[in-house]
């Protein structure tokens, strides 16, 4: 059985998706700045660098708007919470954090998290692999780590307990409730990235979150590969819980697997595709599908993982065992 040919290319599509989201997070603050320039009617008073921003943004947005000050309000925000032509979408963690901070249910806001929650129930932790702007940087950081390792430097490759992040989620929620402020937002990288990019471009300067994010990058580099996402991210924990019984999951085709273990090596989340161990942490990033030399990984529509299927049929171990069996049969 061959997997559908497109699955192999989904990893490229995923990089396109990550890049587009990140590019939007850079573009939106510039659009905001451009809008304020338009609203002020003072092109002549702008500094040359500001005029350059104005010109570029005018060229970029002109085909889509008549009145930039109003029309460009259609898209605002970031992946933590955003507005798209009146449709407001928010991170489930934002909804949970706000519920904890106020100890109330504010439905107009909670409903904005409904679509992301629904998608997570179906696709699991897909946000982490496909949208999260921090993932974009963390994966580049992870690539940097492998280059450094190739150059002979020591980088962190420790393994911690993946359940720590559920503790971080719990602590974040308890802290939010104790302080009456949505503090999970301060330790959640995609929220930080969205905010800090806006601070940097729209206001100038960084907030406290930038330092925190820098710390997580160093943690990934020096302690554990993709350590923050694997072991500490509160949002990742929430998405993992939501995606526990996701419909779309990756499965191994045992007949064509040759036990090369490239899937385990490439998995950013330290999962075990080789032994059918995906679990709730898999973010359907499809890196393992892309790397598989024998096309032995594919998507399945199931609400639980396949039980362990044993060694791959093209692998040395399986063939060895079965030659023995064949030999015995001949002898008898």
């Amino acid at each position: 059985m061959k997997p559908f040919f497109l699955w192999r290319h989904l990893n490229k599509l995923r990089w396109v998706s990550l890049s587009v989201v990140f590019a939007m997070l850079v573009l939106l603050p510039y659009i905001h700045v451009y809008q304020t320039y338009v609203a002020a009617h003072a092109y002549d008073l702008l500094a040359p660098s500001e005029q350059r921003v104005f010109d570029v943004m005018e060229t970029l947005t002109q085909p889509f708007t008549n009145d930039p000050a109003e029309d460009l309000d259609a898209i605002k925000g970031n992946t933590w919470s955003g507005t798209f032509w009146g449709l407001k979408l928010s991170d489930p963690l934002a909804a949970l954090g706000q519920m904890a901070a106020g100890l109330t249910l504010y439905w107009p806001f909670l409903l904005t998290a409904l679509i992301p929650i629904g998608l997570s129930v179906v696709f699991g932790r897909f946000f982490c692999g496909w949208i999260c702007p921090a993932t974009f940087i963390y994966e580049l950081n992870s690539n940097l780590a492998s280059w450094l390792r190739w150059a002979g430097l020591k980088v962190g490759n420790r393994r911690l307990d993946k359940r720590i992040k559920y503790g971080v989620l719990a602590i974040g929620i308890v802290l939010s409730a104790a302080t009456g402020s949505v503090l999970v937002a301060a330790i959640y990288p995609p929220a930080i990235i969205g905010r800090e990019l806006y601070y940097m471009i729209g206001i100038g300067g960084f907030g406290a979150g930038a330092m925190f994010f820098l710390g997580t990058l160093l943690f990934d580099l020096l302690v554990a590969r993709r350590g923050f996402c694997r072991y500490l991210c509160p949002g990742g924990a929430l998405y993992s819980l939501l995606g526990r019984y996701r419909l779309f999951r990756i499965r191994r085709i045992v007949e064509t697997c040759n036990d090369c273990a490239k899937c385990n090596a490439v998995c950013e989340f330290d999962l075990d595709p080789l032994r059918d161990g995906f679990g709730q942490e898999c973010n359907n990033c499809t890196a393992c599908i892309a790397v598989c030399p024998t096309d032995a990984l594919t998507f399945a529509v199931r609400i639980t993982d396949y039980p362990a299927q044993g060694p791959g049929h093209l692998g040395r171990r399986y063939r060895g065992e079965h030659e023995d069996v064949a030999g015995h049969e001949e002898a008898a």
Partner: peptide, 28 residues
């Protein structure tokens, strides 16, 4: 404080750019 999720959209919508954001100077 209990409602605000720190998304930064108010600042992004402000045509006057008068909305700024606290770092740690006003408490956690």
């Amino acid at each position: 404080l209990a409602h605000c999720i720190n998304c930064g959209q108010c600042g992004e919508a402000c045509p006057n750019r008068c909305i700024k954001y606290f770092s740690l100077e006003n408490g956690l």
